[in-house]
């Protein structure tokens, strides 16, 4: 059964069609990479999938439920409960330490629990850095806090926007290893990326050009496996 389905989705800004009649199905547990040049509509698609924006036309079905016509408040509740966001620029709150940054996601979702937040940091190998402020962490460490924050509420989907865009190779590998582990555990992942190396780690690669899906291919590496 598909976790997420876009049905003829368009997003129009004035005369610009950022997304033009796009249809896409993502299965539960699938790892999807969305690739494409700047201006191809990647971010627009991510915002619509992440419930941060609404389509101008078409339907967005999550677990079979159409969420494209929901109110802002309902969408907020929806993405809070179902989706974990990972950002290229990490977006940690600079005056909260690592564990507090993870707990903020719990705070808006249900009930903050420091023990659980520490466990989430442990999953990304950062338990010993839990009391450090973002300014005391490297870029890779900040991204791992961001991933721990995305994981803390056990979302059905992790949505990552250029998660390795600001990282060196060593940290890129650490983050990809975490994604691999999450995928193995059955978490659905959508990763928006420019980087072919990151894209090639995904099970399926969707390429966007001028708001259209130009290709949608299965990664042979996984087919062979």
């Amino acid at each position: 059964m598909s976790l997420l389905e876009l049905k003829n989705v368009s997003k129009i800004y004035g005369e610009l069609n950022a997304l033009d009649n796009v249809s896409l199905k993502i299965d539960k547990g699938e790892w999807l990479a969305i690739m494409g040049p700047s201006g191809s509509g990647k971010s627009t698609m991510m915002n619509i999938i992440g419930c941060l924006d609404k389509p101008s036309k078409g339907q967005v079905l999550f677990d079979g439920k159409d969420i494209s016509k929901e109110s802002r408040r309902k969408l907020t509740e929806f993405h809070r409960d179902k989706i974990g966001l990972v950002f290229q620029q990490f977006h940690l709150i600079n005056y909260l330490n690592a564990v507090e940054n993870v707990m903020v996601a719990q705070y808006y979702h249900s009930m903050p629990d420091e023990k659980e937040a520490l466990e989430a940091l442990e999953r990304v190998g950062l338990k010993e850095r839990a009391k450090h402020l973002p300014s005391q962490l490297s870029g890779g460490e900040q991204q791992r806090v961001c991933i721990a924050r995305a994981l803390i509420n056990s979302p059905e989907l992790i949505l990552a926007d250029e998660p390795t865009g600001n990282l060196d190779e060593a940290n890129e590998n650490i983050v990809l290893d975490i994604f691999k582990r999450l995928h193995k555990e059955g978490t659905s992942l959508i990763v928006v990326t420019h980087d072919p190396e990151v894209g090639e780690e995904a099970q399926r690669i969707v390429r966007l050009e001028h708001g259209h899906i130009s290709s949608d291919i299965r990664n042979e590496k996984f087919s062979e496996g």
């Binding site: 600079n94 909260l96 330490n97 903050p112 402020l133």
Partner: peptide, 17 residues
């Protein structure tokens, strides 16, 4: 715990900023 976290965030905002 929610109220505690609220004050923890406010206190952190004052102390660390």
């Amino acid at each position: 715990k929610k109220t505690l976290m609220f004050f923890r965030m406010v206190a952190a905002s004052f102390i660390r900023r």
